[in-house]
């Protein structure tokens, strides 16, 4: 479970968000919503330990200092652009965490890698390089790599942004299936709505001007019952425009 208290994030002297408070219960699919450029990726980078909070604490399963180099990762992360290693095949990308942190024999690693690729529908693409596959496939490969060590916690940055509608729907289904079958806590950052209603039970909505959370709860409830004009504007804008990242 993730517990965030009085968190302020930003770069240098520039504060993007402040006073953030939220909790993500174990097993939940939790969505962080907000317009482009409001600081969603920055929040995610703080959560996974790639940036230091300007203030406040992030507590993940009782640990507040994490992402130290030289220790096995405590969670899987898929980056906005996939973050695949361009010089490695998909197989090698997914195998790297396993080779680094497990004592599995090569044959066993092969079995695990193939199963991860199969979970995200990329079986057969083991020997493809990242530049030989489409954007949606890169994101799925990124998820496969994030899943490599079967982490209890998965962070995904804009999984469906920039994908064609069919790939986006497929990816959403993959995420829901993963959560249901593996029960891992999943934190998703996105500015797209089509997927949210399908996958999220819980969300927070960030706002650039307010520099904080302007709404929280079940996204369907928010859409149907919120009276905050900023929240309504977000939902309306999203339902009339689709797809674009």
């Amino acid at each position: 479970m993730i517990r965030v208290k009085d968190l302020a994030i930003g770069y240098g002297t520039r504060v993007l968000m402040q006073g953030l408070e939220f909790e993500v219960p174990r097993g939940d699919v939790f969505v962080i919503l907000g317009g482009s450029g409001c600081g969603k990726s920055t929040l995610l980078r703080n959560l996974v330990g790639l940036e230091r909070p300007l203030r406040g604490t992030i507590d993940i399963e009782g640990v507040t200092h994490f992402a130290e180099v030289g220790a096995p990762p405590r969670f899987g992360v898929m980056f906005q652009s996939g973050g695949l290693f361009g010089s490695m095949t998909l197989w090698e990308n997914v195998a790297l965490p396993l080779q680094t942190w497990t004592a599995l024999e090569p044959q066993a690693i092969d079995v695990v890698v193939r199963s991860k690729l199969k979970i995200v529908g990329l079986d057969g693409y083991e020997n493809h390089l990242p530049n030989e596959i489409s954007g949606g496939m890169k994101k799925r490969a990124g998820i496969a790599r994030a899943l490599a060590l079967d982490p209890p916690l998965l962070f995904l940055d804009e999984p469906s942004a920039g994908l064609d509608p069919i790939s986006a729907v497929e990816l959403d289904e993959t995420i829901v299936t993963l959560n249901e079958s593996l029960g891992m806590t999943t934190v998703i950052v996105t500015h797209e709505l089509q997927s949210i209603f399908k996958i999220a039970r819980n969300c927070i909505m960030l706002d650039r001007e307010a520099k904080g959370i302007i709404a929280r709860g079940d996204p369907r409830q928010l859409r149907d019952h919120s009276t905050d004009p900023r929240v309504l504007r977000f939902f309306n804008r999203q339902s009339t425009r689709s797809g674009a990242a």
Binding site: P72, F75, V77, G83, G86, L96, T100, R145
Partner: peptide
């Protein structure tokens, strides 16, 4: 530099590598 801007370096860190 390309690895840095395409988040590959971040990915290395989140895998627990230096």
């Amino acid at each position: 530099g390309t690895m840095k801007v395409s988040e590959e370096v971040d990915a290395i860190r989140t895998i627990g590598l230096d």
